[in-house]
Design a protein around this nucleic acid. Structure first.
Lengths: 353, 353
DNA sequence: GCCCGTAGCGCAATCGATTGCGGACCCGGT
DNA sequence: ACCGGGTCCGCAATCGATTGCGCTACGGGC
């Protein structure tokens, strides 16, 4: 007759210790490679055997409570359904996982209050560091966290405060490459759909665009930039319509990102504009499936997966060393040429409309 | 002269109790709405005031250790970069969040070993339940978990074992709608690119396809189904090529999902097939951006966000009630008609090749 | 004036693992 | 026989919150 079993409680350290005939403290030391030298080799292997046979798995919650470490980092992104982010997340997880860490993911929906409360809850869950993809140029919350000594890496976007370590694409060079590509094709009047100027990506791409025009001896007429209030299809469409309606003359568009470029496609359909014959378009990011569009979109490729993995590596490094060399990394971008760009049909002087 | 402060330790329950001049136990009861009636109203509000002023936040780790609840559920998906999943994840989080729960996400990459070890690690982190999107028809691991009493909801796919609660789309009706649409357009010979038959979605759609053909008085020749080994573009392309090379006669394709349909687009480009003039295609899932393809893809829309939110609601219910009424839900699907489907150019008897 | 019911709170154990401190023991040297 | 120095290991506190149990008052009923 067997003793009655409590509903299959998973084995604890105490159970292992009992089985091996040692004190829980000894079992703990035997199980931890770092403290194993403190216990007799034979005892240690006995403990390990028992742990194995019992299927013992340390309780990370109890461990966290005592050590106040959680083997977890917080991952703050605007919105997971934006196709930009899944590859970033995978890149992060693929580095964190082998290092014994996990990522805890939250979506802020670009809402600053939500962001603050979510980061709060991450911190109370003892995350050891943060990877933040929601940086705005002015971002008091992030400045404050940094001042409090929170380990943190910005990804994809940066703040104006360069003290915060970051991993981003080399947007300036990316834009320059796009302008060079269009100039090579013969375009002389190129417009830019600029993303939100309170984000580093929006601002840097905008400035780089103007600089690149000058470098190619092209006119940097301010009317050749349209501001978009958000990185969305709708805003891209709105901005392009505005430029067309204003009667601006141009033969190519550099969109601040692929979603803005998608908005352009909507306008093409609306107004019977043929791309690239009437108008060339370059996107930014090279999102998944963008090569299946009509026509396939030429886009500046951003290595999102690598952005993620690099940020994770950087954060892990920061977590290990108490004194952390803050640095920021720019990853190189490349232009993926597809069929949305071609030589201009009109001479620069002609009006498209 | 101030006493030296330890590096800003966040306030604990003990600090609150001290400040309010009560025992930690009383403070705990005052803070918890469920036990608050046990303490004098005035005392309770004093505790709340002190907690507020100290910025007290309960330590979820300590709480979890004691209560062995974690306010966390595990979310097991194959691969976050598959555009199917982000909306599901958002649906889940949007329900879990307000209920005080969080989701812990893992990617299995469709690897059974990886899946097992990830679920293991989720369980050792005390997740209270699982939402699983990686079900295969035969899935001993899930059967075992269910037998062990793990709270679990399957999403998107099911197992053969109907004991496991699930939330999926009504695939059979969805396929029937697609077949009806094509039949209405005049198609008589329709092929199906069937997804992996070890998944419920693959099998159900396949069977429903054959049934729908019969219902419409169409030939259900077995040669009109091509098997795909995975839900990928490459497999979709391979399968379509195979059908074409075999000289099969058909005017329309129902792809097991949108990725398989994308593979068809690749073959169209390769072989100069014009869609929908030469061949109509229907996808399945209605992924984001699929309306931007060339031509925009007709697809059976699956409400992924709702799949997620419904699964989360169901799981929460299961977590609250000790006796759980297991049930499974089929969400209705609708056909989104776009330009990849049109009337057949050839009579059924003619060969496309 | 005595007893009992009840409201309000405190005591201490508990969840499971970690770790500083010190005790037991062994061994060799003198 | 005694001592010093290691090696191994156990004791007990600790992380922070929760909770069963029981104590103290107080008030009303007889």
């Amino acid at each position: 007759m067997s003793t009655t079993l409590p509903p299959v409680r998973p084995p604890t350290l105490r159970d292992v210790a009992l089985g091996a005939g040692v004190h829980p403290a000894t079992a703990s030391r035997a199980l931890n490679p770092a403290t194993r030298p403190l216990v007799n080799t034979e005892t240690a292997s006995r403990v390990l055997r028992v742990a194995e046979s019992l299927g013992y798995r340390p309780n990370p919650i109890a461990r966290s409570l005592k050590t106040s470490r959680s083997a977890t980092v917080g991952l703050v992104i605007p919105d997971l359904t934006n196709p930009l982010f899944p590859p970033i997340v995978r890149g992060i997880e693929d580095v964190l996982g082998p290092a014994g860490y996990n990522a805890w993911l939250v979506n802020t929906d670009n809402d600053a209050d939500r962001e603050e409360s979510l980061i709060d809850s991450l911190r109370s869950r003892q995350v050891e560091g943060l990877i933040v993809a929601t940086a705005r140029l002015q971002h008091p919350l992030l400045d404050r966290l940094h001042a409090e000594g929170v380990r943190m890496v910005l990804i994809n976007r940066r703040t104006a405060n360069a003290d915060l370590p970051s991993v981003t694409g080399d947007d300036a060079t990316g834009v320059a490459t796009a302008v060079a590509h269009l100039a090579d094709l013969g375009h002389r009047r190129i417009v830019h759909l600029a993303g939100p100027q309170n984000t580093s990506t929006g601002l840097v791409r905008h400035r780089a665009f103007l600089q690149a025009l000058r470098d190619h001896g092209l006119d940097d007429d301010l009317g050749l930039v349209a501001q978009c209030a958000s990185w969305s299809e709708e805003e891209g469409a709105r901005a392009l319509r505005e430029l067309l309606d204003a009667g601006r003359e141009f033969t190519a568009v550099i969109a601040g990102n692929d979603l803005l470029a998608l908005g352009c496609y909507d306008v093409f359909a609306e107004r019977g504009i043929e791309c690239p014959r009437d108008l060339s378009v370059v996107g930014f990011n090279d999102m998944p499936f963008i090569d299946k569009l009509r026509p396939p979109l030429t886009s500046v490729r951003v290595p999102h997966y690598e952005l993620g993995s690099e940020a994770a590596r950087m954060l892990l490094e920061g977590l290990r060393s108490p004194t952390w060399q803050v640095r920021s990394v720019l990853l190189p971008l490349t232009l993926t040429r597809r069929q949305s760009t071609g030589p201009p049909r009109h001479t620069p002087a002609e009006n498209l409309g």
